[in-house]
Design a protein around this nucleic acid. Structure first.
Lengths: 233, 233
DNA sequence: TGTGACGTATAAGTCTGACTTTTTGTCGCT
DNA sequence: AGCGACAAAAAGTCAGACTTATACGTCACA
């Protein structure tokens, strides 16, 4: 995904990042640059660059005479796409998936409402195209093709909202949707009601009906929450 | 704020980061590590570490034989607290403030609803304490003291939601509230209606009334949107 | 026994210079 | 015009020496 292992320090990060986010080194653990450099068989300069990156993600803190200490989870930059990927690939994947789905339930309805106000004609066309693609692949175990259109749909909505903060959540939503299809219970064809909702959202956005787009999207996210048993009924 | 200039590479970032996020180097601009190192009067190793950090924020991309190129805004990690601070300190502060306020309007109501379900007794107490502090400083141009309690209030709500993604937005909200008080139109005492809403939110959370907490918080964020003339009435 | 000043060991931080690798642009040949 | 080889440019990597901050232990003194 994205840009894996571009350079030695990238390879180090691909190993150290997942290890830290997986809790392999508990908070407060102390690492030493020199030892890490030896362990990964890279020079200290490369190791230092890797540590700097981890530091910018607030995963670790580097202090003189002490070493590189792992910070508590509460301080991590959990919105960093890299951190999200590492965590989704690790042990607390379920927990991370829940957190992100709740975030979706907050953001996507509002984004859809804004999209109804700001979407360009091109974006509206793209949206209906995605919705049609979902319908076309909603039966007959064509989950992979369905997923592609589902991801594209939500990405367009978030982008069309015109808010850059929302737009940047496109990748996150993509990860969540992909995770749901690939690792969670998703053997059967998708819920027909959900498919219909997506079509209706596309319609509402095209019609410029913000409240309706918001409410319909809210129902979609409620479905996502229920799938993970998050919603207290 | 937070950890300024810890080390030489930190000082470089404090200058380069704001410059890039301010659009001083337009997307596609090419920088060269050696030149930058000379310009900042640091060694190449230090400069390289700084570039690595900028790269992890997706502000720049480093490629062999070409140099360090500035990426388009759409690819920046806009949720990185450091990036947010840089942008808030720079030219597109108003734009950033709007984006973040819209994000708040999506997240905070949902967070308040969850807080009503999950807040501990201690958090409820803290919340009412903050609300009382806001009331106590709502008249007589005690804006600074009011701000402190306002920030604390929203931080507690986000934390009490039990969702780590929401919790990590505490700093962002703090920046937005501080920015509103310090740089925007906020000469007079705060809107009494807003103060009342905060008190009522504290009550609703304590009572475990999620829908009410959510609706009241929605009204607070609507007020914030109106202050920035975002809401189309 | 407690407390403060002092010294020392430690690990990060910094700098320098040489070397390697990848990529791009160009030049010349067909 | 197209293609391949060559050369230059910039990042990437490494090794070693030196600097600096600071946690911790020690020792003297109260």
């Amino acid at each position: 995904m994205s840009t894996p292992g571009r350079g030695l320090h990238g390879h180090v990060l691909d190993t150290l990042g997942p290890a830290i986010t997986a809790g392999e080194y508990p908070p407060g653990s102390v690492l030493r640059t020199d030892e890490l450099a030896q362990h990964f068989e890279v020079s200290r300069s490369v190791m230092r660059e890797a540590v700097r990156v981890l530091e910018s993600m607030h995963l670790v803190e580097s202090r003189r005479r002490v070493g590189v200490t792992v910070r508590p989870r509460a301080e991590w930059n959990v919105y960093d796409p890299q951190v999200i990927r590492w965590r989704l690939a690790g042990a607390d994947r379920p927990h991370q998936l829940r957190s992100l789905t709740v975030l979706r339930s907050a953001v996507e309805p509002v984004a859809a409402g804004l999209a109804a106000q700001h979407a360009t004609a091109e974006q509206c066309a793209e949206l209906t195209e995605c919705a049609l693609g979902m319908v076309a692949n909603s039966r007959g175990h064509k989950l992979e093709k369905y997923l592609v259109h589902d991801i594209a749909f939500h990405r367009v909505v978030l982008t069309a909202s015109g808010n850059e903060m929302f737009a940047r959540l496109g990748d996150v939503v993509a990860e969540v949707l992909a995770g749901r299809t690939h690792h969670e219970v998703m053997f059967e064809d998708p819920d027909p009601a959900a498919v219909t909702l997506h079509v209706q959202v596309a319609e509402a956005v095209r019609a410029g009906d913000a409240p309706r787009a918001q409410e319909l999207t809210r129902q979609i996210t409620v479905g996502a929450l229920q799938e993970l048993d998050i919603l207290a009924p």
